[in-house]
Design a protein around this nucleic acid. Sequence first.
DNA 1: CCATTAACGACTA
DNA 2: TAGTCGTTAATGG
Length: 231
Amino acid sequence: MELITYLSRVDLFKGLSEEELQQLNHITPLEVRPRGTVIASPYMEHKVLYIIKSGSVRLYKVTEDGKELTLDILGTGHLFGEITSFRSGVPLFAVTMEDSVICEMDSGQFRKAITEKPELALKYIEIVTARLQETEDMLEYMAYGSVRKRLLYLFNKLASKLNPSASNEEWIPISVQITHQELASMTGSIRETVTPILNQLAEEGILRREGARKPYSIHRSRLQAALSESK
DNA sequence: CCATTAACGACTA
DNA sequence: TAGTCGTTAATGG
């Protein structure tokens, strides 16, 4: 389980030398996208692959009655696109949660990169597999677990995704602002249920706020202990 | 245990 | 000002 969450944050191009990265100059020029920029939507012609060079991105879809369902939040080094998250025909949105730099590749560029560096294909499969494992884990909590457990799992996932470098610290900050609404949306719940659970987790010393309306931090060991309990 | 409904003050586009 | 956010409480499955 720990290995899986580690794999999920492996950068596709990690392990390649600088020269090799230089050769992969098919990557489109980079520019900073301000917070709130919609990177992809059903109304846009989207690329096959997006790579987050820095910042964070929220993936969500919109139901018929206009409600947003947040599927995932990704951080630096993560990728998303047609094959990982964008199934054909399903309207999906991607929006930056902070100022971010995003690489875009079309199918030709991606194909060419893989042809030149076949290891990329293997890494790509690892990443997609880890993503699938995550959704299966959450599905299990949806079926048999409490909302509390779903939130614990979600916080654990977000912490390792958004702040992999601080994994040896006890308190790991989740460096984006997330509303109760979004937490509820990602755990198949509602904000009225999420609020008391969050307050309880804070009392238990598992969760902490940096400031008034600032990002959360989680206590890694306490969280994992709580996750293996039966509640 | 948890969704639903209602309601309220505080905050924000 | 209208809409969103966090919170509490009553109710019912």
